[in-house]
């Protein structure tokens, strides 16, 4: 089944919940190789989105929800994650367009646009030990699932699985972008917090799709 505004809102609520739940984990990861604010910043950003969901006008689309997340994260997340995720959600919103429901192919296109936005903004490449290392396999898996005729939920499940593996695979990498790159070799052995939060957010999207399919 295709995913609509209910899924989009549920994704945001689940995102806020999972980020809150993993706040300390993200803080710890970021303290090891960064400036130690990723969990707090992301938590503040998503908590700021929640009350605004209730103010969405009737007839809003999934794209409207993503745009709301984008502008809120850009304004409330102080670190690099604000502009990076903000750009991702904004590009995702543009890809979703005015559609009221999104099928597997549309979801894959949305994720690809989000990933492209992060690449443009952050200029990171795969292997730099950044959130791109979760996004790139996620988009590849999503596109493969969509090409196989997968539903929106199938596409998100494939993306979430690949993002989680991608985040785990950042552990041995030496950072080449962002604050962790100042640590050089010492950044190896720690998972990238941005890749980890990407995995959490895409899992939340997949969970919301499962809930919608089961409803």
């Amino acid at each position: 089944m295709a995913l609509d505004i209910t899924w989009a809102v549920d994704w945001v609520r689940r995102s806020a919940a999972v980020i809150s739940e993993h706040r300390v984990e993200l803080l710890t990861l970021d303290r090891e190789i960064g400036d130690g604010d990723h969990g707090e910043n992301m938590d503040r950003g998503f908590q700021a989105v929640l009350p605004k969901l209730d103010d969405l006008p009737a007839g809003s689309t999934p794209g409207d929800v993503l745009k709301l997340v984008a502008t809120t994260l850009i304004s409330t997340v102080g670190g690099a994650a604000g502009p990076l995720y903000g750009t991702a959600y904004l590009k995702g919103a543009v890809a979703a367009g005015p559609a009221t429901s999104l099928d597997g192919a549309a979801i894959a296109a949305l994720l690809a646009a989000a990933r492209d936005g992060i690449v443009t903004r952050g200029k990171a490449e795969p292997g730099d030990k950044t959130m791109i290392d979760a996004w790139t396999p996620a988009v590849d898996a999503a596109e493969a699932a969509a090409n196989d005729g997968g539903s929106a939920a199938d596409v998100l499940a494939a993306a979430a699985d690949a993002a989680r593996s991608g985040a785990e695979a950042t552990e041995p990498l030496v950072a080449r972008k962002g604050r962790a790159s100042y640590l050089g070799e010492r950044s190896a052995g720690h998972r990238d917090p941005g890749a980890q939060s990407t995995a959490l957010l895409l899992q939340a999207a997949a969970d919301a799709a499962n809930a919608a399919a089961g409803a």
């Binding site: 690099a80 604000g82 502009p83 952050g122 962002g178």
Partner: peptide, 14 residues
């Protein structure tokens, strides 16, 4: 100054 300041500035320009 640092990288994310540039990201924020670029986003503001957008």
């Amino acid at each position: 100054d640092l990288g994310s300041a540039i990201l924020t500035a670029e986003t503001a320009l957008d």
